[in-house]
């Protein structure tokens, strides 16, 4: 599949947005400016961006506890995201949700999720709604390798396969479920191997190659849209930072981390784009724009008001 220059540059920009956003959040955390916990996706930008690039704007996603990248790629607004992490009234969830619960229903983001595999049945239900309404939408369901050992994963994927629902399951396998390596958590070598149990396509892709991710997801999305049912895509990738804050990373070596940093999806894509004839200045300009955007977004969040205690009860019931 050939991608337009515009699309390629969009992907490059989004990966940068995610990287810079996450690094800024990491900095804020270390400076004790963010409350609670959060899970960063530095190193995993290509799977989020490549997969979402394969969707139409009307399509939907469900996300995970490591969901900032998915939200950004699906058109999430950085000011509202920073504001949410800072617990501000102007945040996506009015400061009620924090990092693990950002949703942007208008953009088709049905929400991050604090429960591992929690979003998989929900994505399946969203796809069921599309089938019943015949609205032509596809739902992309993100989850990690750890989620594939949850019962909810099995129940939901089986249901979607039986009903041929328009959903694409994207497993971002970053090799560890918190600290436990996937090979210790799974009797099959690849998460995609589990697709056999549901008689659906199971595809392994280099999760650090944004266009490769795009290509396999695109095919799965088209298949889903045609009513041919779900697919399970496994994007092999790596999270550079710890599982959450204060993870000493005793379960892996610094050498392994270094090896994966050499496979940086952003650096790699930059080289590819340059070799395809895109001027460096164009890429530099994007980087600069993203930096400014991040700065402004953070300023907006920092200058935003705190939620009012007298409104604490709002929003429980519709």
């Amino acid at each position: 599949m050939t991608l337009s220059k515009e699309k390629k540059l969009w992907m490059y920009r989004k990966m940068h947005e995610i990287r810079n956003f996450e690094l800024e959040v990491d900095r804020l955390f270390k400076a004790n400016l963010i409350w609670g916990t959060c899970h960063l996706s530095v190193g995993q930008e290509a799977s989020a961006v490549g997969a979402i690039a394969a969707l139409d704007e009307k399509d939907m996603i469900t996300s995970t506890h490591r969901g900032h990248g998915h939200c950004i790629a699906k058109g999430g607004k950085l000011p509202q995201m920073f504001a949410e992490l800072l617990g501000k009234e102007t945040g996506y969830c009015r400061g009620r949700g924090g990092s693990m619960h950002i949703a942007d229903l208008e953009m088709g983001n049905l929400g991050a999720n604090g429960i591992v595999a929690g979003g998989i049945p929900i994505a399946t239900g969203a796809a069921l709604a599309s089938k019943l309404k015949k609205d032509g939408k596809v739902t992309l369901c993100f989850f990690g390798d750890g989620a594939t050992s949850q019962g909810a994963f099995h129940e939901a994927v089986n249901l979607a396969a039986v009903m041929k629902l328009p959903v694409v399951y994207v497993c971002e396998n970053n090799l560890y479920g918190m600290s436990v390596p996937f090979k210790k958590a799974s009797a099959v070598e690849n998460a995609a191997d589990r697709a056999k149990a549901y008689n659906i396509p199971g595809i392994i892709v280099d999760g650090n190659d944004v266009e490769a991710v795009y290509n396999v997801v695109k095919e799965a999305v088209e298949r889903a849209r045609k009513g041919e049912g779900p697919s399970l895509i496994e994007a092999k990738t790596y999270r550079w930072l710890g599982h959450s804050k204060s993870d000493p990373r005793v379960y892996r070596t610094r050498e392994e981390e270094e090896e994966w940093k050499q496979k940086c999806p952003i650096k790699r894509y930059r080289q590819q784009l340059i070799s395809e004839g895109i001027e460096e200045e164009v890429l530099n300009k994007i980087e600069k724009e993203v930096e400014d955007e991040i700065k402004k977004a953070l300023e907006y969040a920092q200058n935003s008001p705190e939620p009012k205690v007298e409104e604490i009860m709002e929003g429980v019931y519709a």
């Binding site: 998989i120 929900i122 399946t124 239900g125 969203a126 739902t139 909810a152 129940e155 089986n158």
Partner: peptide
């Protein structure tokens, strides 16, 4: 069968599919 849906024996998927469909206006 589109409006009276028999499912596998999967209570989590039944409840979750209901949540997801409800979030999408059903």
């Amino acid at each position: 069968e589109n409006r009276i849906i028999d499912t596998p024996i999967s209570e989590a998927a039944i409840a979750g599919a209901a949540v997801g469909a409800a979030l999408c206006g059903m």
